[in-house]
Amino acid sequence: MTLTAVLIDDEQNNLDNLGHLLGAYCPEVTVTGTALSAKEGRLLLERVRPDLLFLDIQMPGETGLDLLRSLHTYSFDVIFVTAHDQYGIQAVKFSALDYLLKPIHIDELRTAVDKAIQRRGHPQGQLENLVHLLRQQHREDHRIALTTLKETRFVPVRQVIRLESTNNYSHFYLAGEERLTTSRAIHEYEDMLRDYGFIRCHQSHLVNQRFVRSWVKDDGGYLLLDDGTQVPVSRNKKSAVAAALHR
């Protein structure tokens, strides 16, 4: 499969470097246009309609996220490119989208392109979810993209009761007694969900504080949830759990 691509970055040397890497290591990608600003990029996207967009996040004036927020339809996949791993990346992670940190590593570029090829023709709504996150001011309305073997589900964070890890898999337990399994480690979700009231009470457990009924300190200590689940609290997490529950 071949993909057409547009590159948007406010520095010409970054565009030249990425174009060179794609030509050398991703022969299935054909660059059909480049732009040095969000304004130029918006016009280019309307004219070219690529399969894939490599988009710098932090640009003067309008950012890459501002550009996406201004669009009405999304007929392309996006791979974000940024020199700042905290700038906008939280929302990108929440939407299960790919991103590359500058300077770009060849293996990471190749992996991101491979994922885009696998997704082509199977729109999963990641971009729509990202824009939804950017437009919503209230965290209670945010949805997290959970990619399983069969689908990508967009689940409201308020419906996630807890997470439990098994090796590099994370099991999401949702309100309504549904369980979803993803192939991402629990520590990645801990970073994403830290500001949403989730507590890492154990190496293998992450709990949504809104579902905690009580902290039972007998038998080593555990959190009793509204659905009757008992989630262990490890010794080295007790102070963090206490601080979180008494905020």
Rank of each mutant, 00 (worst) to 15 (best):
residue 210 R to W: 03
residue 218 D to V: 14
residue 185 A to S: 13
residue 217 K to M: 07
residue 198 F to K: 11
residue 190 E to M: 01
residue 230 Q to P: 00
residue 217 K to Q: 12
residue 227 D to M: 00
residue 202 H to E: 10
residue 205 H to A: 04
residue 189 Y to C: 08
residue 211 F to R: 07
residue 194 R to E: 12
residue 183 S to M: 12
residue 209 Q to H: 10
residue 190 E to F: 09
residue 213 R to L: 12
residue 212 V to M: 04
residue 182 T to S: 11
residue 228 G to I: 02
residue 217 K to A: 01
residue 197 G to W: 01
residue 184 R to A: 06
residue 183 S to A: 13
residue 208 N to K: 02
residue 233 V to K: 06
residue 198 F to L: 04
residue 204 S to G: 07
residue 211 F to M: 00
residue 184 R to Q: 15
residue 190 E to L: 04
residue 195 D to M: 09
residue 180 L to P: 00
residue 208 N to I: 05
residue 183 S to C: 12
residue 187 H to R: 15
residue 217 K to T: 11
residue 203 Q to I: 05
residue 210 R to D: 12
residue 208 N to P: 02
residue 233 V to N: 04
residue 226 D to M: 15
residue 202 H to S: 14
residue 214 S to E: 15
residue 185 A to P: 07
residue 202 H to Q: 12
residue 183 S to K: 10
residue 186 I to E: 00
residue 184 R to N: 12
residue 225 L to D: 08
residue 190 E to S: 09
residue 211 F to N: 04
residue 225 L to G: 08
residue 205 H to M: 06
residue 225 L to N: 01
residue 228 G to E: 05
residue 193 L to A: 03
residue 236 N to Y: 09
residue 221 G to A: 07
residue 235 R to A: 13
residue 228 G to F: 07
residue 219 D to A: 14
residue 209 Q to P: 01
residue 222 Y to H: 12
residue 192 M to E: 14
residue 209 Q to Y: 05
residue 233 V to C: 11
residue 194 R to C: 05
residue 213 R to T: 15
residue 232 P to M: 06
residue 229 T to I: 08
